[in-house]
């Protein structure tokens, strides 16, 4: 559905000749919905910007929001939705901000009740509906990218690689390991080995609640990749249930060193590197 060229120019004319009245009405309707969550000045600015973009687009002969003449209008609408999404407004509030224009238009249309006016109004509505749906989509896209960003940040936060000793780094894994996270862990660990020149890495899985075949495979692949690079991995913190799962699943850990705790793993590495560790002997009762 698109407007005819005539309808488009009539809408442009109406928006221009009754500019003040339309924007004022429009602003009032939105203000009623938002109940003061946006400053009046900001709201007026937004409405005027949308209004100007519409007048411009119609002036260029826009008959459909997807047309090339409406590029600028789409950009303004997208910017509007992004702003709303970032400020925490709901999708409905954002879209109704645009739909409010219909009501504002109705108020300024000549009340002659002729069939022409009705036709025009329906045609104008089509364009406004398109605009409303467009803001809805932009809104969702903005939110999706926000969520994706946050998920990524969470991933970064949840996979620290720490240096334990000269030449020894460790990854304490906490929480469920899915494929995506395992991949991030693997890449980070290996990169840290290169950056710090550490030939030993300890993968501590004390905080991992369960290990399935896929997770175990990821850990094994990390160990093999580290070996290819010239570093050795030790896995520590395997809990009894996990040990049972590993055996039950028939996963071969082969010649990979496993230790009960992070401390044992570190001691093991230090012994290999020739560092002396004083071990406190349990004192005998006299």
């Amino acid at each position: 559905m698109a407007l005819s060229a005539d309808e488009s120019s009539r809408l442009g004319e109406l928006l221009t000749s009754r500019a003040e009245q339309v924007t004022q009405q429009w602003t009032e309707i939105i203000a009623g919905q938002l109940r003061g969550r946006l400053s009046q000045a900001e709201l007026v600015r937004q409405v005027q910007e949308l209004h100007r973009a519409m007048v411009d687009a119609l002036g260029k002969g826009t008959v459909d929001l997807n047309g090339e003449e409406a590029t600028e209008l789409r950009a303004v609408l997208a910017e509007f939705s992004r702003g709303q999404a970032r400020q925490g407004f709901s999708a409905t509030e954002t879209a109704t901000g645009v739909f409010a224009l219909k009501e504002a238009l109705l108020a300024v249309l000549e009340v002659d009740q002729s069939i022409e006016t009705l036709r025009d109004y329906v045609a104008f509505s089509t364009l406004i509906d398109q605009m409303g749906l467009f803001t809805f989509e932009s809104f969702v896209r903005t939110r999706e990218s926000l969520i994706a960003d946050q998920a990524e940040q969470l991933l970064e936060l949840s996979t620290p690689v720490v240096k334990l000793w000269e030449g020894v780094v460790a990854v304490p894994l906490v929480g469920t390991l899915d494929s995506a996270r395992a991949q991030v862990v693997m890449e980070r660990l290996l990169q840290t080995l290169v950056d710090t020149g550490s030939p030993y890495a300890i993968i501590d899985i004390t905080g991992v609640p369960a290990v399935d075949t896929q997770v175990a495979q990821h850990i094994l692949k990390t160990v093999v990749a580290a070996r290819l690079m010239g570093a050795d991995c030790i896995i520590s913190g395997i809990r009894p249930q996990i040990a049972q799962t590993i055996v039950a699943l028939g996963i071969e850990f082969g010649d990979i060193a496993t230790k009960a705790s992070l401390a044992d793993a570190l001691r093991h590495v230090l012994r290999l590197t020739g560092v002396e560790t004083a071990r406190r002997q349990p004192r005998r009762e006299a």
């Binding site: 693997m186 890449e187 290996l190 990169q191 080995l193 290169v194 692949k221 093999v224 990749a225 580290a226 290819l228 690079m229």
Partner: peptide
């Protein structure tokens, strides 16, 4: 690292 991961 990327080469090692790919080889595995």
């Amino acid at each position: 690292p990327a080469v090692a991961i790919t080889l595995v």
